[in-house]
Computed example of a mutant assay.
Amino acid sequence: MTGTKIKKYILDNRDDLINKIMDEQEFLLPQEMNRYNSNMMEKVRSDTSSNLNYLAQALAVGEKNIFVNYYSWLYTVLKERGIGIEVLKKHLKAIKNVLYSEFTQKDFNLIKNYLNSAEKEIQNPENHYQSFINENNYLQEKAKIYLNFIINMERERAVKLILDLVDQGTAVDDIYLNIFQQVQYEIGRLWQLNQISIAQEHYATSVTQLAMAQLYPKIFSSYKKGKKVLTGCIGDELHELGVRMVADLLELAGWDTIHLGSNTPPAEILKLLVEKEIDLLAISLTLPDKLELAQDLITKINENTKLSGLKIIVGGRVFLENNNLWQKIGADAFAADAKEAVKVADSLL
């Protein structure tokens, strides 16, 4: 089978595979599984489903790191919540034991290679304890203060800090890159390390969205260069703050932006690209399960003669962690952050 066919088999039979893996885990981890209540068992099922999904998506595009990086992230999340490495290693063994009986030896060897790489990674995990607010950031101290405000749900003080920086002459794009972006990454890291709650994480995002909105009078008063860009997330992708930053900095750089936000059907994107005579499409993907949607959208764009001059930039975590993935799905370019997106956009058109 090809990686795409393996993915289809895994996802088409996911419920049955989950049941078999759960049974195998009860054999490999009898004490732990017997100790779990119904809520914990549901979380185990959910994690197993996610593991199969990431494995399938990684196999489909031939990018092992999609699964390895996810499993390393999961290891840190569970470790900080009291679940040890042996549980995760035996979970991988349960997946291997079940998939061994589902595939030919050749196909299973490919799958096993991905699973073994994940096991190796969690035995020598990347250091997740280093802050994203780095020492080279000249706004480092302001970023730390802003982070403290939003973690403690002090919205007014957080927004005032940003407005004061603007009044003092700090460039808007510097605030976006050195405060908003680094703090949002840091918020995600702190949740991963079990140092803040989901409620705090969501609150932090909402405050940053509010603070960004306060800067719009400066962003939307910039000159215009006569180029249009459409930005957003496709399918049910909900992580839209990053691509919203891209839209704002492109607007600041003179582009006319149409930002669609999260959860946008590909058909609607395609329709707007034609109707509004868009020059550039910028889309963001955090999770790999939207890769097929993105690739299908790009294929349809390339087949549409009315969009022959359109350029496509992609970004988001899944591309950031897999260097050549943007080329595999047919995009024209990749940007690691909002500031780079502006440079790439200007170079393309």
Rank of each mutant, 00 (worst) to 15 (best):
residue 155 R to V: 04
residue 173 D to N: 10
residue 128 H to Y: 15
residue 102 E to D: 09
residue 134 N to T: 15
residue 163 L to S: 13
residue 137 N to W: 01
residue 134 N to M: 10
residue 189 R to T: 02
residue 98 V to A: 10
residue 141 E to R: 13
residue 220 F to R: 13
residue 134 N to F: 08
residue 193 L to I: 09
residue 207 V to I: 11
residue 218 K to S: 10
residue 188 G to P: 01
residue 185 Y to M: 15
residue 115 L to F: 07
residue 189 R to Q: 12
residue 152 N to R: 09
residue 109 N to H: 06
residue 161 L to M: 05
residue 211 A to R: 02
residue 214 Q to S: 15
residue 153 M to L: 14
residue 128 H to E: 12
residue 220 F to M: 14
residue 93 K to N: 11
residue 192 Q to F: 06
residue 108 F to N: 07
residue 181 Q to L: 10
residue 173 D to T: 06
residue 169 G to N: 07
residue 155 R to T: 15
residue 203 Y to D: 02
residue 177 L to Q: 13
residue 167 D to P: 00
residue 201 E to F: 05
residue 156 E to L: 11
residue 93 K to F: 03
residue 187 I to F: 10
residue 212 M to I: 04
residue 94 A to K: 00
residue 101 S to G: 04
residue 182 Q to F: 00
residue 178 N to E: 11
residue 208 T to V: 11
residue 158 A to P: 01
residue 111 I to T: 08
residue 213 A to E: 07
residue 206 S to E: 04
residue 104 T to I: 05
residue 134 N to A: 13
residue 221 S to Y: 04
residue 147 L to G: 09
residue 208 T to S: 12
residue 196 I to F: 10
residue 203 Y to C: 05
residue 172 V to T: 12
residue 112 K to F: 09
residue 166 V to R: 12
residue 140 Q to I: 03
residue 107 D to G: 07
residue 92 L to T: 04
residue 107 D to M: 04
residue 181 Q to T: 13
residue 164 D to T: 11
residue 127 N to R: 10
residue 145 I to K: 15
residue 102 E to Y: 04
residue 203 Y to E: 05
residue 105 Q to V: 12
residue 214 Q to W: 04
residue 204 A to E: 00
residue 172 V to Q: 06
residue 141 E to V: 05
residue 190 L to A: 13
residue 180 F to G: 02
residue 202 H to Y: 01
residue 182 Q to L: 06
residue 111 I to H: 06
residue 155 R to D: 11
residue 158 A to E: 02
residue 131 S to F: 04
residue 124 N to C: 10
residue 216 Y to I: 01
residue 175 I to D: 01
residue 164 D to Q: 08
residue 182 Q to G: 03
residue 199 A to Y: 07
residue 221 S to Q: 09
residue 89 K to W: 01
residue 108 F to S: 08
residue 216 Y to N: 07
residue 174 D to N: 13
residue 169 G to Q: 09
residue 146 Y to I: 08
residue 95 I to H: 01
residue 217 P to Q: 09
residue 203 Y to M: 08
